[in-house]
């Protein structure tokens, strides 16, 4: 797990959802975070694409609404967290 990538990931989640970067944990999900609605999720996927220079599948906009899910999605696309 790359520390730099993890910081970048936490920073992105924090910027879009408004949770503090050090409170971004795997168990966070759209169920537990109020600001994690479908529109913010779109911005979150976009932010991760911009930060890591990857293109994520369109279906990911509709699913993976948890920190753990996003991390495994990024891992599938070659981003080691």
């Amino acid at each position: 797990m790359s520390r730099e990538n993890l910081d970048k990931f936490n920073n992105a989640v924090s910027a879009i959802l408004g949770v503090a970067a050090d409170e971004v944990v795997d168990s966070l999900s759209s169920e537990s975070v109020d600001s994690w609605d479908s529109l913010n999720h779109i911005n979150l996927i976009g932010a991760l694409e911009q930060e890591f220079g990857v293109m994520l599948p369109t279906e990911s906009i509709a699913s993976f609404q948890s920190v753990a899910g996003l991390k495994s999605l990024l891992a599938d696309h070659g981003v080691e967290l």
């Binding site: 920073n11 992105a12 924090s14 910027a15 879009i16 911005n43 976009g46 932010a47 911009q50 930060e51």
Partner: peptide, 11 residues
């Protein structure tokens, strides 16, 4: 102007 910078600055 990345989404992360916009998000952090707006917050």
């Amino acid at each position: 102007p990345t989404l992360v910078k916009i998000g952090h600055a707006a917050r």
